[in-house]
Design a protein around this nucleic acid. Structure first.
Length: 689
DNA sequence: CAGACGACATTTTTT
DNA sequence: ATGTCGTCTG
């Protein structure tokens, strides 16, 4: 028999669990009316549309505290956030509000929560209990293997490469669209290859299944499958989740929206929080229409708007409002402030070139520090991770400590991947992808031989006994050495601390690394050593591996921390990674047309709008001071320099909402007195502005 | 079949 | 400037 749903009518009496009387005094005092409403409305579906700086995080934090204080078991509350850091921070803050139990609220990203559930219930949809999570680079490697196996690497006609294929397949999964549609829309030049790409996608799927691999997208889609196909599991899970809160709802995709619906099936208490003006992840399948559609998906959904901004000064707000007003798709709300009237004008700084820009920023940061603004209250934001390379040099030169967020993860660097592959093999001796990596590191073994060995491993009783594999004898010695090491360590992993296992691997890998990356091995060795330091924080291999895929540790942070003694560092961050954060002073660098908006989005008005929202996100991070800068002469990649134009989104803004700053060399400053509209304190060393 | 070499394009943004 | 891809050679 199929399962039917029986709908229980809601009764007016408050639910027995949330019935402990809570003193509302604290909540009344700390929150405005709209926030208070959002915090204390616990039942049913609620959409909170919260503009930048309107206390979104505070609202979620207080709501978590409120629920727990009301007697709701913390483990029946789920807080889904965009990064795990965000969840952690909110729960810590909630715990500090008075109720320590808040620390045990369930929280994390969609991916990490899905991962947890799949570990628990995955076998019911045929997942192996030791399935492996692939990060993007792993997924590309797997696609590459499949691509070669299907013979697409030597076609008369050019075939997309692994990175592109991964994008296409992932977009199809995230948007729940056929591959053909993705190609039509984003890769029209590959239209003629639809059949082949689809074939490859199927083979990739098959490969993952055969090897117990899940990529990021699978975490979501397989959980959805589980919830849809296993009503009893769904009911069980959903029953435990009395209250669900989803942060950054504007950046969820259709699968995530579906998951929220399924998870909230029993209790129906869902709060989605977000801001349609800050949707910046469409490249990952996010669709800001999700947030607009939320009320349609939940009956009797209550809508609460937070429009009073507490973060920025009036003048910064005027600027950000002017920026977002250029959007083709209009937004329903306009932020206002009653708290921070006036303030400094945002400054638009045109620097002669990138070097000037870097010097300006460092100099200004030093001045701010003199004036009492600590470094950690300052951030430099950029569109692309590499936009800050020049600035990083300058900051190092001036001994200004900084932490950088965003950009390529160090765990995705080849040598770290190598190292982790050995660890993964200890966890799962049948991990074909890791074998592929590790075997190819042995001298004389290439893709072909590696595949042969892996074929043997697939059916082997004792996969570490590589010397018994049926391969040419010339590899036997190196295979035996590798196999012995792994066999020994996989035995020791039960009894010895993780770090000593890792050190043993490093000892083995070190000569390989030197050989393999001869050009720059010292730098890479340092990375591995940093990585070893991080491993000290882990007790089990399993937990380390899970974190590596889902929450890529960045240990660039470690490196700078080591150099600084007592001063908390300045933040450099891509705009994407700066989401949800705020600083006293924000610098946006390289605000050039072609960078922000990116030249890749110039053709498409929806994408242009997203770039505009991105700029909006950047500018709304600023509390008191905002500098937008761009170089006039830009250097191409080794190629010729060219003239840069300021972002169209900036030059379209009426001039009265900001002021312009011109940078001049100090000696020339006297002659240029009239140029800047405003005189700032004379520069100590080299620049006047 | 592995590895070296040279051509080539290649660049968002992240779980 | 860098990394990736394909071709060529031993």
């Amino acid at each position: 028999m199929s399962t039917r749903t029986f709908i229980l009518k809601s009764d007016d009496a408050p639910s027995s669990e949330a019935s402990v009387a809570v003193s509302l005094e604290k909540y009344r005092r700390d929150l405005n009316d709209a926030q208070f409403d959002a915090v204390t409305t616990t039942e049913g579906a609620i959409l909170v549309v919260a503009g930048a700086g309107t206390g979104k995080t505070k609202t979620l934090t207080y709501r978590a505290a409120y629920l727990v204080e009301s007697g709701v078991a913390p483990t029946s509350i789920l807080l889904l956030t965009f990064t795990r850091r965000a969840a952690q921070e909110m729960l810590n803050r909630a715990a500090m509000l008075g109720d320590g139990r808040c620390a045990s609220i369930l929280g994390g990203t969609f991916h990490s929560y899905a991962h947890r559930l799949l570990r628990q219930y995955g076998t019911s949809i045929g997942l192996a209990d030791n399935f492996i999570v692939l990060d993007q680079a792993d997924s590309e490697d797997a696609i590459e293997i499949v691509r070669t196996a299907l013979g697409f690497h030597k076609k008369e006609k050019r075939f997309p490469k692994k990175g592109t294929l991964q994008h296409i397949i992932s977009a199809a999964a995230n948007k729940q669209l056929p591959i053909e549609t993705i190609l039509d829309h984003s890769y029209p030049h590959f239209q003629s290859l639809v059949a082949d790409i689809e074939k490859l996608a199927v083979a990739y799927q098959e490969y993952k299944r055969a090897n117990s691999l899940l990529d990021f997208d699978d975490l979501l889609t397989r959980l959805k499958e589980l919830l849809l196909e296993q009503p009893s599991a769904r009911h069980k899970i959903s029953s435990t989740l009395r209250y669900i809160m989803v942060d950054e709802y504007q950046d969820t995709n259709v699968v995530q929206a579906e998951l929220v619906r399924l998870l909230s099936e029993v209790h129906g208490n869902v709060m989605a929080v977000g801001d349609d003006a800050q949707s910046i992840y469409s490249f990952r399948g996010a669709n800001y229409r999700n947030i607009l559609d939320f009320p349609k998906q939940y009956e009797n959904c209550k809508l609460i708007k937070l429009e009073e901004n507490y973060r920025s000064t009036e003048r910064i707000l005027n600027m950000t409002n002017a920026v977002i007003n250029q959007a083709k798709e209009k937004f329903a709300k306009t932020l206002f402030t009653t708290q921070k009237l006036g303030g400094e004008y945002p400054a638009v700084v045109s620097a002669p070139d990138e070097r000037f820009q870097s010097r300006f920023i460092s100099q200004r940061i030093l001045e701010l520090r003199e004036e009492g603004v600590p470094l950690h209250q300052v951030a430099v934001l950029m569109r692309n991770s590499r936009d800050s390379f020049d600035l990083e040099l300058e900051l190092r030169k001036r001994n200004l400590p900084f932490v950088k967020y965003g950009g390529q993860k160090i765990v995705e660097a080849a040598h770290i991947k190598d190292f982790v592959a050995y660890l993964k093999l200890l966890h799962n001796p049948k991990d074909a992808l890791s074998w592929n990596r590790v075997l190819k590191l042995l001298s004389g073994i290439g893709p072909k031989t590696a595949q042969e060995v892996i074929e043997w491993i697939r059916t082997a009783e004792q996969p570490y006994r590589l010397e018994t594999a049926t391969v040419s004898p010339k590899y036997l010695e190196s295979l035996r050495k590798l196999g012995d090491l792994l066999a020994l360590l996989s035995h020791n992993v039960q009894t010895q601390p993780l770090i000593s296992i890792a050190e043993a691997i490093y000892e083995y890998y070190k000569p390989i690394l030197r050989e393999q990356y001869f050009e720059d091995y010292p730098k890479r060795e340092k990375d591995i050593e940093n990585f070893l330091a991080i491993m000290l924080n882990y007790t089990t291999l399993q937990s380390l591996l899970a974190d590596l895929a889902l929450e890529p540790l960045d240990f660039s942070a470690i490196e700078t921390k080591a150099t600084l003694k007592d001063e908390s560092p300045l933040t450099l961050s891509t705009i994407h990674s700066a989401k949800g954060l705020e600083w006293h002073t924000v610098f946006l660098i390289n605000a050039l047309d072609g960078v922000l908006p990116s030249r890749y989005s110039a053709a498409d008005s929806a994408q242009l709008d997203e770039e505009l929202r991105l700029l909006y996100v950047a500018l709304t991070r600023a509390k008191n001071l905002l500098y937008i800068s761009y170089p006039i002469i830009c250097s191409g990649y080794g190629a010729d320099d060219y003239f840069g134009n300021p972002s169209r989104f900036i030059s379209n803004v009426p001039e009265e909402v900001y002021e312009k700053l011109l940078l001049v060399q100090e000696r020339a400053a006297q002659k240029q007195l009239a140029a800047p509209k405003k005189e700032l304190p004379p520069a100590k060393d080299d620049l006047a502005f």
